[in-house]
């Protein structure tokens, strides 16, 4: 993360992650070393299109399912969950 920028703290599967406010939740999940979803046959999947059309980046955010994380920016205290 670039220095000298504003920082937001969120959690990905309970682990604290710091990011800039311009960081998407999708990027934060990858930074945390994870992937975003398990496919219907159980394969790990991560973002593909980065623009909201492939739905590979769906995660749980603050208790809500199927959120496209590439279209959502990190916010303080956000609780992000992936399988």
């Amino acid at each position: 993360m670039p220095e000298g920028k504003l920082v937001v703290s969120l959690t990905v599967n309970g682990q604290p992650v710091s990011a800039t406010p311009e960081t998407t939740v999708a990027a934060a999940v990858l930074i945390a070393g994870g992937y975003t979803r398990a496919s219907v046959s159980g394969e790990p999947r991560a973002p593909l299109c980065g623009m909201g059309i492939c739905f590979e980046c769906r995660v749980w955010i603050d208790g809500r399912q199927h959120q496209r994380s590439c279209q959502i920016l990190c916010a303080p205290g956000m609780d992000v969950r992936t399988p």
Partner: peptide, 29 residues
């Protein structure tokens, strides 16, 4: 949007679209 063509391994994490990777980088990856 981008056209994605399937090839073995294209579903692995960290395989993106070309524009997709660019967008992710601009989004903080």
């Amino acid at each position: 949007r981008e056209l994605f063509l399937p090839f073995p391994g294209w579903t692995l994490p960290n395989v993106f679209g070309a524009g997709g990777l660019d967008a992710m980088a601009r989004g903080g990856l």
